[in-house]
């Protein structure tokens, strides 16, 4: 864990309560064996492994958890959940932390990944399905890495695997209304929480 300073543990913190209620997982069941971190395909690039995230939740270290790269680098492969000796669905814990991070609009430690997901959803909203060429182009443009992943582009085009124009689906209106309703509902929810 990249940490300096002294930790002030806060048992049964709001963070722990949030995670437990939204993920349905009992955080205190974790006894820190590390089987999750050991099997996690992404733990080698994470600043904190899944085990450390579980520990940080137990200690109530809210900022450390929400600012970690872990929650964004988790690919939801669920290897951790499948192998946890205490049957904690750790992938679900990660999921609930991403929702919390997104709701709090905290600065994501992995901006590119967050941007990717955001663009992905924008494209669904716009055309109902994901147009991979647009996704790649927008990602390169907005993420300020204009030449990323260009290597496979000619091959993809030559194999007829990428269409130039976005797909047209009749259901788009429905999807837009769905997105609008979800957004309104979330705003309502936040307002209630503030009150």
């Amino acid at each position: 864990m990249n940490m300096t300073g002294t930790i002030k543990p806060s048992p049964s913190s709001d963070l722990q309560n949030f995670v437990e209620s939204r993920s349905g997982q009992k955080v205190l069941r974790c006894y820190q064996c590390g089987k999750c971190s050991a099997g996690c395909p992404a733990s080698y690039v994470m600043d904190m492994g899944p085990r450390q995230i579980m520990r940080a939740i137990q200690l109530g270290l809210r900022e450390k958890v929400l600012e970690s790269s872990t929650i964004w680098l988790c690919i939801s492969c669920q290897t951790c959940s499948a192998r946890c000796p205490n049957e904690i669905d750790i992938a679900r814990v990660m999921e609930s932390l991403r929702w919390l991070a997104a709701a709090e609009k905290s600065e994501p430690a992995e901006k590119d990944i967050a941007l990717f997901h955001q663009l992905f959803l924008t494209l669904i909203k716009r055309s109902g399905r994901v147009h991979e060429l647009s996704l790649g182009a927008l990602y390169n443009l907005l993420g300020r890495h204009p030449f990323a992943n260009m290597k496979r582009l000619p091959g993809m085009l030559a194999r007829g695997k990428l269409s130039v124009l976005p797909p047209r689906v009749k259901g788009v209106a429905e999807i837009r209304s769905l997105f609008a309703k979800v957004k309104a509902m979330e705003k309502e929810h936040q307002k209630r929480e503030v009150e």
Binding site: M1, S37, S43
Partner: peptide
């Protein structure tokens, strides 16, 4: 495995 004392796989 993980060396959980140092926190790396």
């Amino acid at each position: 495995g993980e060396d959980s004392l140092i926190g790396r796989p």
